[in-house]
Nucleic acid binder design. Structure first.
Length: 496
RNA sequence: GCUGCUAUAGUGUAGUCCGGCCAAUCAUGCGGGCCUUUCACGCCCGCGACUGGGGUUCGAAUCCCCAUAGCAGCACCA
């Protein structure tokens, strides 16, 4: 085979071309002239990783093919609208760096939907159904039409008017699309598209009749010229339902792609469950670092590009997957490692006095890969704080990094320490751990908050200058400096 | 129950449409080594998968059937 490649490279390439590994996302059909896509969250809370997948995938395709990228706020269910979420969603999108070109909010567009509903009734594509829920459900299961289905258009228009003018109350009437009652999937049969809701009031508009998503989504996808829709496969049934509406209107259907369900190890992504946890005090807020919200990731020092890269690596496969923190952390480390300055953080410190050791200034590099950044200086004056876990009967020598070696001798379970010179070679030969340390005089109290609890310790004074930045605590891991004050430093553990 | 979708290593992913290049790609993870005044970064080596069973075929991860498992929908949610 290799011989063929050398003798006739063209032939070889022609034969084996299809086996070149593709990079990036699969091509979209009908996208050569550019695309119009949308990210359409429900404003019930802040965005989480699950949203990020939809948002980033659509964003990537718009960037790949060129075109417009709409943010559409789907707030047509007042029961599931959190007034604060409008801003949170916007903030999260800014953080993610999406290339949104315009924004629409569905609650501003109710009259558009009402008009289209009237048209749909006029076309005989929908009817007002006054059956109660159970009755309709039974008829549907039996593939039978409900009595409302065959009423004349004029009567349906009249009933529609009664819905709009508040004659009908909640639950008394609904608009249904005529589909195929013989459809083997009961979920397809004459599904509802408008309902009446008396309460709760919508936070943004005064309304009584609300479109269901299958109607408002079709209306807006058409009105806004959406060409491609990428969304989770939990919408496959909705896509099929929506086709009935497109057909009634004679509209062109966008290209759909449905990706699989995504879970995340050890995290709840359900907005309602997160809200409950916050209300009960289990979580400190939407940005509690144990949550999978984007603001929680941001607080922990995960970069938006890491989220993007991790999500793009997953792609649009329709298999159900479980999102792994490892993969996100690996992406983040690529971004953060070259940037983060290095500092010492000593967890659970033990203070050593080292008789005979000379006072000495240690100069440790802020970043070993970038010496030009300079150094931090730590002045040793007889005592050093070290991680308690490093002082074990097994170790006979430790090396304080960038300083010198210390011998350990144990008597009756009590260690004593002595200066052992500053030869790095000796430390290596003795297999001494080279550990982080701090002069007691300048140690700053520092709490490192991890997803599994708090670690108290101390850090270098210069960490105070890193507020809001991600640093690397040597031999501990990356951390984002969350707050700095007289009592010390609080940092969130990012990952190792 | 009815309807539909999916099934490649611990995790993610390529290959599946149009069967031979696949004793299966890449990343991550894990193990080992090198480098290194961090258990970071970098480099090298290794580990690890076609859900099971039939069938078609000279040849199947790829096509067909059955089974199993997972997921989704069957809401006046999105």
């Amino acid at each position: 085979m290799k011989k063929l490649q050398i003798l006739a490279p063209d032939l070889y390439n022609a034969i084996f071309a299809k086996h070149e590994h593709r990079k990036g996302l699969p091509e979209l059909e009908c996208a050569d002239q550019g695309v119009v896509m949308r990210f359409a969250p429900n404003p019930s809370g802040p965005l989480h990783i699950g949203h990020a997948r939809a948002a980033v995938l659509n964003d990537a395709y718009v960037k790949q093919y060129g075109g417009r990228y709409l943010l559409r706020i789907e707030d047509t269910d007042p029961k599931r609208v959190d007034p604060d979420a409008y801003d949170m969603v916007r903030e999260d999108i800014v953080w993610l760096g999406l290339g949104i070109t315009e924004t629409v909010t569905q609650s501003d567009r109710l009259s558009l939907y009402y008009d289209l509903c009237k048209q749909l009734i006029e076309r005989g594509g929908a009817y007002v159904c006054t059956c109660n829920n159970e009755r309709f459900r039974a008829l549907k299961q039996a593939k039978c039409a409900c009595p409302c289905r065959d009423e004349p258009v004029a009567k349906n228009l009249k009933l529609w008017g009664l819905m709009l003018d508040r004659t009908f109350k909640e639950g008394e009437a609904t608009v249904r699309v005529k589909t195929d009652l013989d459809n083997p999937d009961p979920a397809m049969r004459d599904f509802p598209v408008f309902r009446i809701l008396d309460s709760p009031p919508h936070p943004k508009v005064s309304a009584h009749v609300y479109p269901l998503m299958n109607f408002s989504v079709v209306a807006d996808d058409h009105l806004l010229g959406i060409t491609h829709v990428i969304r989770g496969k939990d919408h496959i049934a909705n896509t099929r339902r929506q086709r009935y509406i497109y057909d009634h209107f004679g509209w062109k259907v966008p290209v759909y792609r449905h990706y699989g369900r995504m879970g995340i190890e050890g995290v709840v992504l359900s907005t309602s469950q997160m809200r409950l946890g916050i209300q009960e005090g289990t979580y400190t807020g939407w940005d509690d670092i144990r949550l999978g919200t984007l603001r929680a990731l941001a607080r922990r020092g995960i970069s938006p590009d890491a989220v993007k890269n991790a999500v793009l690596a997953i792609g649009i496969g329709d298999t159900d997957i479980s999102f792994s923190w490892d993969n996100l952390y690996a992406e983040n480390k690529k971004i953060v490692d070259p940037i983060a300055n290095r500092y010492f953080f000593v967890p659970d410190p033990l203070t050593l006095t080292i008789p005979g050791a000379p006072d000495h200034n240690a100069h440790a590099m802020l970043h070993p890969g970038d010496p030009a950044r300079g150094t931090r200086t730590l002045e040793f004056k007889g005592t050093a704080m070290v991680p308690r876990s490093e002082i074990t009967p097994e170790s006979v020598m430790i090396r304080l990094k960038d300083l010198f070696n210390v011998n350990l001798t144990w008597e009756g379970g009590v260690p004593s320490f002595s200066y052992a010179g500053d030869s790095l070679e000796k430390a290596r030969a003795a297999k001494a751990h080279i550990i982080q340390w701090l002069p007691e005089e300048c140690a700053v109290p520092c709490t490192l908050l991890t997803q599994s609890g708090e670690i108290t310790g101390a850090c270098e004074p210069m960490v105070k200058n890193e507020l809001g930045h991600v640093v690397q605590f040597e031999r501990v891991g990356f951390a984002k400096i969350d707050s700095v004050n007289e009592s010390g430093v609080r940092a969130y553990f990012t990952h190792k």
